[in-house]
Design a protein around this nucleic acid. Structure first.
Length: 437
RNA sequence: GCCGCUGUAGCUUAACCCGGUAAAGCGGCUGGCUGUUAACCAGUAGAGUGGAGGUUCAAAUCCUCCCAGCGGCGCCA
């Protein structure tokens, strides 16, 4: 937190107190995370946005008026604490505040989350607006923030412009059946599945663009890796080949994972996650090689089909760091993918598979830049041509070869933080069965 | 869309198979305790078992339908 941005009479954030070595007078603001009383001593664990610190109030050291105020205080009340820091081996982290004055700023009713509640995911998600205050839940959100921060730093360092694409759209990017429909002044519109098509338009102006935006998929997928609303980091680069874009993805993932490992060590620790950032280069295998490997392990699927969940898990567990599966069959991909020069059944595209069974985190590839070929695809797949007219027209006005990718933010967070279910990576997850809170 | 599982106090669970009118821990409240980390000790209030219907002298328990959630598959990112 900036030292120039102080609120409510606070002199330090909790993190700042831990960074100071000397004992000092302080006033902090925060919430009571935990409270326990042993006769004449009351222990409060105070939480602010930067961390946690224990505060002790002793009956002998403060006025009875202050002691009574502390005694009355309830867990999760917002409070102001005045005191002096003191090193003490008995305190978590070795530092505590010896309380002198106390004030409840906003009182909390009895807190509904008791220790037995941690066993009940559906209860915790029913009261997600409260349960996000928990140590684990908030650590995940801090990690997610760092993932996006690291991505932004990487892109800006490399000459990318941040753009924002519309989220209300007329045309589908992927399959048409999985769109959320919205009523746009009596006209049928949809929530976007991807910013990609708009990024392709932007590269002729800006050459390298990136975006981080919500995507919506109305798939009735009831799995631990699907959200109906999720955030995607997408980039598109003019003149880039499919190989170039895999290099970019690899550098980005290395940057993100290193930054999280270094700067969120505490959060990973709270989650009990031992995470080692992957070393480049990542493995790159073809769809055919992946299929052979999967079938050798007893899972059969036809050439041309998308890799089934079980197969993806096999690949994910086979390597100790992320692996690209490249050259997917056209039949398993969207209409805009470029095919290999010597084989029009195979696309220049790839998925990046995270290790440890976490699975796919990105999809990328080279886009069709030729007008006639793209027009043919639109016809073949019976897409509503009117909606794609502008996208086709880009190919009439100097569209060079270009490539791009999308990285699922929550999937990446799920992998790095070691989460069982993707909904934990979202502040307020939207799934097949959850629209509230 | 398919398969499987679950639904009992604010939360977690017991009683369900082999029907006899709900038991406990946590949390709450009251009191005690000068080093708690998911504290401890004593006392106390709190549910009629997701909903509707059926079988029965009797249903949390058996049957039917509905609703909600969970786990997985498919589809997909």
């Amino acid at each position: 937190m900036s030292t120039r941005f102080k609120v409510g009479g606070r002199t330090h954030t909790i993190r700042e107190l831990f960074n100071e070595n000397s004992e000092l007078d302080t006033c902090i603001l925060g919430w009571i995370q935990n409270k326990s009383r042993v006769g004449g001593v009351i222990f409060l664990t105070i939480r602010d946005g930067s961390g946690y610190i224990q505060t002790t109030f002793k009956k002998d050291n403060v006025s009875s008026e202050v002691f009574d105020k502390v005694k009355e205080a309830t867990v999760e009340s917002a409070v102001k604490i005045v005191g002096r820091t003191k090193q003490d081996k008995r305190a978590p982290g070795g530092l505590e505040i010896v309380g002198k004055d106390f004030e409840t700023i906003a009182k909390a009713e009895p807190w509904p989350i008791v220790k037995s509640a941690v066993k009940s995911p559906s209860f915790l998600y029913d009261i997600r607006h409260l349960s996000i205050r928990g140590k684990k839940a908030s650590s995940v959100i801090k990690i997610r923030s760092k993932v996006i921060e690291a991505a932004a730093d990487y892109f800006f360092k490399n000459g990318f412009y941040l753009i924002s694409a519309p989220t209300i759209v007329q045309s589908a990017c992927e399959g048409g059946a999985t769109l959320f429909e919205v009523n746009y002044f009596g006209e049928k519109a949809f929530l976007t599945q991807s910013a990609q098509l708009y990024e392709e338009a932007a590269i002729a102006a800006l050459e390298r663009v990136w975006t981080v935006e919500p995507c919506f998929r109305a798939e009735k997928s009831k799995t631990s890796k699907h959200l109906t609303e999720f955030w995607m980091i997408e980039a598109e680069v003019a003149f880039a080949t499919h190989d170039d874009i895999m290099n970019l993805e690899e550098e980005l993932v290395v940057e993100i994972t290193n930054r999280v490992a270094q700067e969120c060590a505490n959060e990973l620790n709270i989650l009990g996650r031992k995470f080692k950032p992957p070393e480049p280069p990542f493995h790159r295998i073809t769809y055919d090689e992946a299929r052979e490997l999967i079938m050798k392990k007893g899972v059969y699927f036809e050439w041309g089909e998308d890799i089934p969940t079980e197969g993806e898990k096999i690949i994910s567990n086979e390597f100790d760091k992320p692996v690209f599966i490249k050259e997917f069959p056209l039949s398993a991909r969207s209409f805009y993918h470029m095919t290999k020069p010597d084989n029009d059944k195979v696309t220049l595209s790839s998925d990046l598979i995270a290790p440890e069974g976490y699975g796919e985190i990105t999809t990328g590839g080279q886009r069709l830049s030729d007008y006639k070929e793209l027009e043919k695809r639109v016809m073949q797949q019976e897409l509503p041509r009117e909606s794609f007219e502008w996208y086709l027209e880009l190919r009439k006005y100097g569209m060079p070869p270009h490539s791009g990718f999308g990285l699922g933010v929550e999937r990446t967070v799920r992998w790095i933080a070691g989460l069982k279910h993707i909904r934990a990576a979202s502040l307020f997850p939207r799934t097949l069965t959850r629209l509230n809170p």
